[in-house]
Design a protein around this nucleic acid. Structure first.
Length: 592
RNA sequence: GCGCCCGUAGCUCAAUUGGAUAGAGCAUCUGACUACGAAUCAGAAGGCUAGGGGUUCGAAUCCCUUCGGGCGCACCA
């Protein structure tokens, strides 16, 4: 169905065409001066500029036509040519009824099932997940959900880092500790052990040591590079060992992702592109786009129009090994081959510092002809998560905070707060834990998504303790209050249907108007991949409800028709909050 | 050196991409629990949008410039 601002834009657009002006000038939006009007159209000024006419005169003509529609309770021209207007309560209630009976609550489908791949998180094998994975997890998941709701077949790919130098580092570290393992015997012909001779905690412990050793000692780095190359070259023992790393790591990653309610449709890694590396190499050789440079095989991608130096994309390093440039290009090739024309977009939710890298990969893919107009390639570069001091977030001791530590901390804070506020006191411990977990995760996700993706932001655990104001828990609290209210209505055998007649008083109108705004927020979030518009709407709606709740009798309303109308507004608010929070990846507990 | 991002209330962030009097939350101050959940609500105060110049009916937003911060510039990912 058509959103309210869109309906109004169409009507106003017609008024412009009637005046021989382009319909685009008729765009209507929610007024930024609610004290003056509900809606505004600024097109008269733009049209006047283009047509070199007087804006007030154009506005006058538009207003004359608008008045004929009979759906406006007030139309005024202000300042240089702003057209301000209110809609009648009848028009508003008719629109609300339409929303209530619409299964998508008024949001249109933008796509018809085209496939979109969202590539996010990219955790490394053998390396415990940490704070750095928080933003891509949350943002990527949200973007995937928005795309899915808008009609795409949205697939999340975790894209595990199981190919680069870190593999060689861990392999060579194990080789030095356990040279007796069959993995390291080049002449070994038998079966490698099915169960790894180490567990995940040993694996994640050995990685930082190996990494530090390589930094400190060039001979260690050399060994790691050699092992990486042989691993990539398919040396059987190394490959078998690598498989063990991946298996253990996937369980660890899955556990962390489960804890924040994030699911992936595709569990591939860089290594899954391995078999295609020679295929793509052959293709690129045939297309003659390789160049040799300082012993490496590269794809030059610089253009004359560049205003900065554009290093080529490296395919083979001078030692014959490959890097993430190779695997990203080959993975892209693989995706295009696998999904064909159905693939509309690939969205990479990766640290903004990788901007140049993706520019290189995208250019190389276009140069190779793997990508023409479609699929659309998007890099959503997110900013750093900083501590209260403005520097990259660390634990109090200055170490890296693990992902699970962070989630547990948020849950503990929520639990503490729950008890302080004396909420959910009658519930058993398991349910309390569950509620605290949901509240904690909501706090983290909402805080993260409230910021624009590309900016660095300050992650202040201490501030999250309060859970007041514009926070996830505040919105959950409002949602829970509505649920409680609706439960009570049900207990009183009060039927709430989508066909309820809405009657609007001055106390109802602000909430009623808010309830028409969701499509605008969704549209803004979808079009620019900016979830903070959804956070903003969720907060405004929750606050609008809270205000309504404070001002109005609902269950205690004696006028039955008014009571039914108000309960219907509550029910719609509840559905909208659930939908928006769902896009944000936030679960609403039944109680809190 | 070249390039990208950023600078908005004491603090953390918005501003529908060029619109009106720049909005929220926190913190501060006032008030409100016999009406459904006070993790709440109603209100007050807080700004030369880093500085300067320009473009136009109109600039936090676009252009130029100065200052300040973050980041990136092939064989790590």
């Amino acid at each position: 169905m058509t959103s309210l601002t869109e309906k109004l834009s169409i009507l106003t657009g017609k008024a412009f065409t009637t005046c021989n002006l382009p319909a685009e000038y008729g765009t209507v939006r929610i007024s930024d001066r609610p004290d003056l009007a509900q809606f505004q159209c600024n097109g008269a000024m733009g049209a006047a500029k283009a047509a070199k006419k007087n804006p007030r005169e154009i506005a006058d003509n538009i207003v004359r036509h608008l008045k004929e529609y009979g759906i406006f309770s007030k139309i005024e021209i202000a300042g240089p040519g702003f057209i301000n207007f209110d809609i009648t309560d009848d028009y508003l209630t008719a629109h609300l009824s339409e929303i209530m009976q619409n299964s998508r609550l008024g949001i249109e489908k933008y796509a018809a099932g085209e496939t979109v791949i969202v590539d996010y998180v990219g955790p490394n094998v053998a390396k415990a997940m940490h704070v750095g994975h928080l933003r891509p997890t949350i943002i990527g998941d949200c973007i995937k959900r928005i795309l899915a709701f808008s009609g795409y077949n949205a697939l999340g790919d975790v894209h595990i880092g199981d190919w680069g130098l870190q593999m060689g580092q861990v392999i060579s570290a194990f080789a030095q500790r356990h040279p007796e393992w069959s993995y390291f015997n080049p002449n070994f012909q038998g079966e490698y052990p099915e169960q790894p001779p180490f567990n995940y905690s040993e694996l994640e412990e050995i990685y930082p040591q190996a990494s530090a050793a390589c930094k400190a000692d060039p001979s260690q780095l050399e060994k790691a590079q050699q092992a990486t190359k042989e691993f990539q070259g398919g040396r059987a023992g190394y490959w078998a060992l690598g498989q063990q790393f991946t298996t253990l790591s996937k369980a660890h990653i899955k556990q962390n992702m489960d804890s924040v309610g994030v699911k992936f449709e595709i569990w591939k890694g860089e290594a899954d592109a391995a078999s295609l590396i020679p295929v793509v190499e052959k293709d690129l050789r045939e297309k003659n786009i390789f160049e040799e440079s300082q012993g490496a095989l590269v794809i030059p991608i610089a253009k004359n129009s560049d205003n900065k130096e554009m290093p080529p994309l490296m395919y083979y390093k001078s030692d014959g090994a490959t890097t993430y440039g190779t695997t990203d290009l080959v993975t892209l090739y693989d995706r295009v081959e696998s999904y064909g024309a159905a693939l509309a977009k690939i969205v990479y939710v990766v640290d903004k510092r990788q901007n140049l890298h993706f520019e290189q990969v995208f250019r190389a893919a276009r140069k190779a002809g793997y990508v023409q107009e479609a699929p659309e390639l998007v890099h959503i570069g997110f900013g750093t998560l900083n501590g209260a001091d403005g520097k990259p977030f660390k634990t109090r001791e200055g170490g890296i905070m693990r992902f699970d530590q962070l989630v547990t901390m948020a849950k503990d804070k929520a639990l503490q707060r729950l008890e302080e506020a004396n909420l959910a006191g009658d519930l058993d411990d398991a349910r309390k834990q569950d509620i605290a977990h949901k509240v904690g995760v909501a706090a983290i996700k909402f805080a993260d998504l409230s910021n624009q993706p590309h900016v660095d932001y300050i992650f202040d655990m201490e501030r999250m303790v309060n859970f007041e104001g514009k926070t996830g828990p505040y919105i959950l609290y409002q949602a829970v209050r509505i649920q409680s209210l609706l439960r009570k209505a049900e207990e009183q055998n009060f039927k709430i249907s989508g066909e309820a007649v809405i009657t609007i008083s001055d106390q109802d109108r602000p909430l009623a108007l808010l309830l028409t705004e969701m499509p605008d927020a969704f549209d803004a979030a979808l079009r620019h991949y900016m979830p903070h518009h959804l956070c903003d709407y969720a907060y405004r709606l929750a606050a609008g409800f809270s205000s309504f709740y404070g001002n109005c009798h609902i269950l205690s309303e004696s006028d039955e028709a008014r009571k039914a109308s108000r309960l219907a507004l509550c029910a719609l608010t509840c559905r909208q909050l659930a939908l928006v929070l769902g896009w944000l990846g936030i679960d609403i507990p039944e109680r809190m």
